[in-house]
Structures are given as C-alpha cells and as structure tokens.
Design a protein around this nucleic acid. Sequence first.
DNA 1: GCCAACGTTGGC
DNA 2: GCCAACGTTGGC
Length: 145
Amino acid sequence: MAPARQYWLVKSEPDAFSWDQQVANGVEPWTGVRNHMAKANLAAMKKGDLAFFYHSNIGKEIVGVVEVAKEAYPDPSVEPDTKGAWLCVDMKAVGPMPKPVTLAEIKADPDFSELALVRMSRLSVMPVSAEHWKKLCKLGGWKGK
DNA sequence: GCCAACGTTGGC
DNA sequence: GCCAACGTTGGC
C-alpha cells in the first residue's frame, strides 16, 4: 500500500523563474535552494508528491500545481567549493490554478495561521498539511488530483 | 560558545 | 524604498 501522499509549497520569484517557464519547460530542476530547512524538505519529497507553485514578490499568489518528477539529488548549480552540499528535485508542471490564491486571502483566513507560508515567510520550500492542501485547492478552484 | 554586525529575503 | 525577520559571519 502506498504511503499517504505528501504536499508541499515551493516559492519562486517570477523574475528568476516563473510559472510560465515551468509550464513551457514541462519538467524542470528545482535548484538554488540554499537554506537548511528547505533542503531537509526537499530531501523528504517523494516522486509523485504534489506542490503548490507560489510566486513571491510579484503576484504573491499560488499560481499552479507541480509534481515531484525526480527525488532529491545533488544540486548541480552549486558553487564548486560547496559541491554536493545542497539538493534539488525535478518538478513537473501539472496545471495552473483556475483562480490563483493570493497571500492576502491566505492571511485573512484564521485556518491558515499555522501555515508555514504565513509563519515563516522566508522559507522557500515548505510542507503543507493535507487539510490545508484541500482547502487551498478549493479556494483556487483546483479540480485535479 | 555567545552575541553584535551585516546581508538577504520578502511583504508592504 | 523601507522595514522586519532571519541566517550567517566574525570578534571575543
């Protein structure tokens, strides 16, 4: 029996890497994470896990859903002196949020007061509980898996 | 090993 | 453009 699927949220500045690019590329290595908590979260991802794709800074909203296409492996984008120190995963675009869920919406709802996005605003890779996932999907009109 | 200074991120 | 939060660095 398959273990329960885990859910995540990954952040990207659209200036650096946007949802449109993710969609255009299909599968894309999720590199550049340089935070130990975020790294631990990457390491815990399993192939098939789903994640929200969040635009930080510009938009500040959940714009789509991606799936873990390849589990954590050494980030090839690291500087030579820290080779092997950081991890990345491959993310596959699943689909766009019919109605992007904004940070303002999330903050306005007390149910999300425990969400890492609210509590630790600088963390770029974070887990999302099944309850939060369901509710965010509902808010965004997401009908997929 | 503590803590102040500094840099970076991200919301406003 | 400013500021708050947080991580990292370096002096002691």
